[in-house]
Design a protein around this nucleic acid. Structure first.
Lengths: 340, 340
DNA sequence: GTAGCTTGCGCAAACGTTTTTGCAATATTG
DNA sequence: CAATATTGCAAAAACGTTTGCGCAAGCTAC
């Protein structure tokens, strides 16, 4: 079998003894074709192993069936899980997922948006990022490419999905306050991004409810490299009076914090309580296990896909929608009362 | 600015007062065009914000500049890290990455291969998978779509990259043997996949060197769901005589094992030693920290991309290449001598 | 038995590029 | 200055689809 070159619809048409137009209509069961030729064409296609060329279809139909997804870090499990779920749902609907990693650099983000645009993605899902590539996005939007943001406000009126980081931080802080903590150190992801800002707001709000002022020296919102966070944790513990609890409000903050505390020989929760955001193997299985405020990654990915599909479905009204994902507190062993 | 519809090369040509053929040649600096018109066309393009349509280019040039990547689990950090690195390198070379998640189901894998094929990906990177969709792959290969396998042999003569799982398991086992362990329980990922097979082979080899026979009741190679692994760990510890060491040779085995051991109140390393494969936050920061045999994820992703790019570069000889990624043992606190 | 309606299908245009070909106009050569 | 080589560009073909249009044949109805 000299299967060397791909078969085109031309080959199918020839094999079935019809014109290519008819072959196309037969394969897509569209327009007026007799049942007899539908069968002839279908058989010919099967025999030849014909599959329509998606590129040519895209060109003609002006739809690539590809969704682009942009995140700051593909390997962050909190993105990876979301991507996985989104891919699954989109695949069901016949879409493929093109991924891009921005490393939180606005330049790379811009380049990727451009790339996706040139590639004519049918839609774009964007994770949080400091960069303001708003003009590029608006241009896409104007060209009928729906954009859904994930923990990110993307300009004017785009759809978005937001984890309720504010409430998460609020609940977490309240939990610690209820245990009697007053000096709660906050290690957060960058306050330039929406999640970071929201978290700090939630923290502040909970403090304010009890009449406490947030103290700037207790808040560290920077990069999340592990070593850096470890040294921040140490520096926080050397304050006098030292904080009695740590709130690590960034998905990658926990590891560094634990490392820092361990280096200093501090025990959890006797010497200091720890509460983190985002559930991981580490939080679950650390000794002691770490209490956490978390949310459903699968749900996030699924809803992102759903939001996108709804925007893509012309029959629906394409009104942008905003979805808030709730969080829940899981109590474990890492929080106690200060001085207990 | 009524930027409503995308600009095509036709608009650029019109604006520059030349034919579209000339515009194309000017923009690509190819063929015979005068410097003057190059400038005129370039300016017109810039003013209009023109960007060539990648779909049309793909159709004409028969190259999509897209690489497909198929893994069993996008959210497994050991794949996510690799994907991240691969995407980075491929992006540098102008390629975009289309991802697919197989969930280890051969059916989904087949569907995705088909999808990628229809989408005309320029190359395919495939992670380990139990399924034998070899005919599909050979068909791709015959159509000049290079395939590079990651921890997977993909049929006849494709390029491949392999982490040295056999040696990893061998070294790990030897390490435990040197400490005096004789009953070493093995929790491995499925033996149907290449990594699992190799690991068991390495384990067996190390045992054989010391004149030990591998005991079937000490080897569990199944699914890696956390609860299942935990119960397996418990069942292993209830053997008499009980194993004195655990070798968890699957990237997701450690969590379940630790959970199982903890449920039983067993101390590491006093009651049982634990050695795992693949470094994670959990292994690093668990108390006690867990010794591990690991490798460089970034390197894997980078080399996969590199391998692919080399196959795609027609100027190179396209000879398939095989790369072995070395592993190294990191000693931590989780391994001691039995009965010590 | 003819007018009109329906059916099935071929033809050709279109999607947005790149590349080949051909043809003038200009430049080079003896 | 005539013959020839070179240059710059327009026109058209091609990539693989889908789809609007028109035409012939068969059917219904008066």
């Amino acid at each position: 079998m000299t299967n060397r070159s791909r078969k085109t619809i031309k080959d199918v048409a020839a094999a079935a003894g019809v014109s290519i137009g008819t072959a196309s209509r037969a394969l897509n069961r569209r327009g007026r074709v007799s049942e007899a030729t539908v069968i002839r064409v279908t058989n010919a296609a099967k025999k030849l192993g014909y599959q329509p060329d998606a590129i040519a279809q895209s060109l003609r139909l002006k739809s690539t069936m590809v969704i682009g997804m942009l995140v700051t870090d593909l390997s962050n499990p909190f993105f990876a899980g979301v991507i996985r779920a989104a891919e699954k749902r989109l695949q069901q609907a016949g879409y493929a997922l093109l991924v891009g990693n921005t490393d939180n650099e606005s330049e790379r983000e811009g380049a990727l948006i451009d790339l996706f645009r040139r590639r004519r993605v049918d839609g774009l899902i964007m994770g949080p990022c400091a960069a303001e590539n708003v003009p590029l996005l608006e241009d896409l939007d104007q060209n009928d490419v729906p954009i859904v943001g994930y923990d990110r406000d993307v300009g004017s009126d785009q759809s978005g999905l937001h984890v309720d980081h504010r409430r998460a931080a609020y609940e977490a802080t309240r939990h610690l306050l209820n245990l009697g903590h007053e000096r709660i150190a906050l290690l957060s992801s960058s306050s330039k991004l929406s999640p970071g800002r929201e978290r700090i707001a939630g923290y502040t709000e909970a403090l304010a409810e009890r009449g406490f002022e947030p103290r700037d020296d207790l808040i560290r919102a920077h990069k999340s490299s592990m070593d850096f966070v470890a040294s921040e944790a140490l520096s926080l513990m050397s304050l006098r009076p030292a904080p009695t609890a740590f709130l690590t409000l960034g998905t990658r903050m926990l590891a560094g914090t634990l490392q820092g505390l361990r280096q200093n020989g501090l025990r959890i929760p006797q010497d200091v309580s720890v509460l983190t955001v985002g559930d991981t193997d580490l939080a679950r299985l650390h000794a002691p296990s770490i209490s956490t405020v978390t949310w459903d990654l699968e749900l996030v990915g699924q809803m992102l896909a759903e939001l996108m599909l709804r925007r893509l479905d012309k029959s629906e009204d394409g009104a942008p929608q905003r979805i808030i994902i709730p969080t829940q507190l899981i109590e474990r062993e890492s929080c106690g009362s200060p001085g207990a």
